[in-house]
């Protein structure tokens, strides 16, 4: 009698949850954003060496998140039934991945020119960074709430929480967009050091993309709530 002497219809019914991978990816994204936040703060304060240590960590975390994403991608056959459509799940994963990708882009771009942020936009830049990280924080919360949505099978209270967080993220993204326009307008007219202008334009563009993708994730989660 072999050790596997059993008929296994019930065991075969359960597939490894892809949401575990998604949560792990979201957790890594959160860590990456935290490192980026520390790095940017040090950069703005002129502590470029210390900032770079954090930026390097962001790259490592992004690499790990990529591995998690590929693992989900490669191990999600079409015959798996999930509480949301497979295509929606894949899009969601792509968006969360774009979020950490852009965090890494910022962490690579910013230390390419170690110089102080020009005085006229220094406060705006700090405020802009705050809005981006607030949006990213709301993204963490909405991903946490999504696990509650799953554990309660899309109960009304959990859906309400998700919708409220969605509103918050949209508001942060809108406010970040406004500040970004203000900074960009100034930079486009900054003729004294054009390279600094180009550098910072690229940086704020990538930073803004973090909030954009956080908003996209929130949009997708909200649209998933009522789809059956």
């Amino acid at each position: 009698m072999g050790a596997k002497f059993r008929r296994a219809s019930l065991e075969e019914t359960f597939f490894k949850s892809p949401f575990d991978g998604l949560c792990k990816h979201a957790e890594l994204t959160k860590l990456g954003i935290q490192e980026l936040k520390k790095g940017i703060k040090l950069y703005v304060d002129g502590e470029f060496g210390k900032a770079e240590e954090h930026f390097k960590k962001v790259s490592k975390i992004e690499h790990e998140a990529d591995r998690v994403k590929m693992n989900i991608w490669e191990n999600l056959p079409s015959f798996i039934f999930m509480p949301m459509r497979r295509e929606d799940f894949m899009k969601l994963l792509k968006e969360t991945d774009a979020l950490i990708d852009n965090a890494e882009n910022v962490s690579v771009l910013l230390p390419m020119r170690n110089e102080e942020i020009p005085e006229p936009i220094s406060d705006d830049f700090k405020q802009f960074a705050d809005k981006i990280f607030e949006a990213a924080k709301a993204y963490d919360l909405i991903m946490d709430t999504f696990t509650e949505v799953l554990s309660t099978s899309f109960s009304k209270p959990s859906k309400e929480k998700t919708r409220k967080l969605h509103e918050q993220i949209c508001q942060m993204e809108y406010e970040a967009d406004n500040i970004e326009s203000k900074i960009s307008r100034w930079l486009f007219n900054y003729d004294e050091v054009p390279l600094t202008a180009v550098h910072l334009l690229k940086v704020v563009d990538r930073m803004d993309a973090i909030a954009d993708h956080a908003e996209n994730v929130a949009d997708m989660l909200v649209s998933t709530l009522d789809k059956k």
């Binding site: 019914t13 015959f79 039934f81 059956k228």
Partner: peptide, 17 residues
């Protein structure tokens, strides 16, 4: 089990079963 899955109660059911 599939019934609970259809009620969006389970995260991944292998329908090939």
């Amino acid at each position: 089990v599939i019934g609970v899955g259809l009620a969006r109660g389970l995260e991944a059911i292998d329908l090939s079963v």
